[in-house]
Amino acid sequence: MQRIDRNTRGVYSIAPTPFHKDGGLDVAGIDRLADFYDAAGVDGLTVLGQMGEAPKLSSAESLLVARRFVERAGRPVVVGVTAPGFETMRELAHEVMDHGAAGVMVAPPTSLRTDDQIVGYYTQVAERLGPDVPLVVQDYPLTFSVVMSVPVLVRIASTIDSVVMLKHEDWPGLEKITTLREAEAAGRAPRLSILCGNGGLFLDFEVERGADGAMTGYCFPELLVDVVASVAAGRRDEAHDRFDAHLPLIRYEQQPGVGLAVRKHVMVRRGILASATMRQPGRALSAAERAEVDYLLERLREREPAADLVA
């Protein structure tokens, strides 16, 4: 399977982990998800991330989920291997790479505060995983409380060859993308692939600023694919018009603490997931929330052919 590198572009959808109503893994649901993403035209998948409920899985379950996606998906799969200790991280990373993963993603521990601590941590990660494991750095200060400045990211890219991609989720973050690309153009930094998260909330401008695409889990990946392609082709107004139709649902899905429940509910409505179950701790949508999401879906249906829903 193709591995990610510093020129990787496109849409890498973050896949949720499907569960049965009793909380058990829905292995057949993984197959349906992989087939759905293939049909949507994404360039790759990311599994066991924040929205994959990775901390709620056992080590054996994590490996099962990753292997199943790798085996089923017809495109590269990045696997989240974040763990408190390096041995657990190394074991999972090597297992999934041996089974054909395209790379691994590591989020910073919340204890990191200084620039040297951040660079030192990713240096240690790279040393423990080895030079042949492509690494994605997850930059998500709103969740991890770790602020990665542009100089820190330049140091990481310049000194750690196996770090090939930045999952950019800073907010606000448009200026960071511009500054990173300016440093690259001026020869002060090597190129990094930049794929953006935050549910796609700023994707229309992120790709205009120089991001290579998206790494996020919005429940209509077709929209992410179309926006990235339209901007690349110079069809700016078309990209924004399509994006604007989805913005109310993107905004609703981006609510902290409830976003994954919204995403899974929509995927049930679309016939992709059999159950919207989240493992505990977690909560289901209230009746009022489900009604609001369904209302947004019906409005989207007027402008989005992909919004054909299952009752």
Rank of each mutant, 00 (worst) to 15 (best):
E127L: 14
T88S: 13
L300N: 04
S149P: 02
V231N: 05
D170W: 05
P131K: 12
A34S: 11
H168F: 03
R301A: 15
Q255T: 06
S275Y: 04
L57V: 06
S286I: 06
E222Q: 14
P172A: 10
G52A: 05
A287L: 13
P84S: 08
A232Y: 00
H168P: 03
Q280E: 13
I14R: 00
R263K: 09
G282M: 15
V227N: 10
R269E: 10
V163I: 08
I194L: 15
V225S: 11
F36A: 14
L201I: 07
D212K: 07
A287R: 08
E182H: 04
I177W: 01
R155V: 03
I14G: 05
A54D: 06
A60Y: 04
A15P: 00
R3K: 15
V150G: 12
D294V: 02
R32I: 06
E175H: 09
L112S: 00
R181D: 11
L247K: 09
V106I: 10
I194S: 13
D212H: 13
M97I: 10
V125C: 12
G23A: 14
A245R: 13
I160E: 07
V258F: 12
V78L: 10
R68Q: 11
F205H: 14
A276M: 07
H99Q: 12
R279F: 03
E95R: 08
P109C: 14
G130N: 03
P221R: 12
Q50F: 04
L135Y: 01
L153E: 10
E292K: 10
F19L: 14
P281I: 09
R181H: 03
